[in-house]
């Protein structure tokens, strides 16, 4: 069983299947597509140049470097969380302002927490693999790969 230690930014505990990418995510362009908007704000990633093309982010422990792109990102994440379609938890190499804003807005305005842990480890995407069963603790920043 592998263990990683990061910095907890949004608290809460969750256990789920990892979805891992080493490519930054543009959550505005990836998620704000008609197929999602008219499907109760589903969080299917529609960026055809990206390795997560057509993957549903819902309920996954999403592991990625950081977000890029539009300042709408915080609001996109916020509304996805509101509709209950968001990832279960997020593990990033760098917590950027847009991703972090979205999760903080959800915490303050909706009282909904999606744990966020920052692990600035260049080996992160070798240590956690897609479909690993991962337990995250946003209070302590601890991550355990249990299956």
């Amino acid at each position: 069983m592998k263990e990683l230690q990061g910095r907890g930014i949004i608290s809460g505990q969750a256990t789920g299947k990892a979805l891992v990418t080493s490519q930054p995510l543009n959550l505005t362009s990836g998620l704000s597509k008609p197929w999602n908007l008219f499907n109760r704000l589903a969080a299917v990633y529609y960026d055809r140049h990206h390795e997560l093309y057509k993957k549903d982010l819902y309920n996954r422990v999403l592991v990625f470097p950081q977000t890029i792109g539009s300042t709408f990102t915080g609001m996109v994440i916020l509304e996805t969380i509101r509709r209950g379609r968001a990832p279960l938890a997020m593990v990033v190499q760098q917590a950027d302002t847009l991703l972090t804003s979205g999760l903080i807005l959800a915490e303050v305005w909706l009282h909904k927490k999606v744990p966020l842990i920052e692990v600035p480890d260049p080996q992160l995407f070798n240590l956690i693999k897609t479909n690993d069963l991962v337990e995250v603790n946003g209070d302590t920043g601890a991550i355990r790969i249990i299956g």
Binding site: T71, M75, T97, S101, L105
Partner: peptide
């Protein structure tokens, strides 16, 4: 300025 999100702004 930082890259602020909509609603934070």
């Amino acid at each position: 300025t930082n890259r602020n999100s909509v609603t934070i702004d």
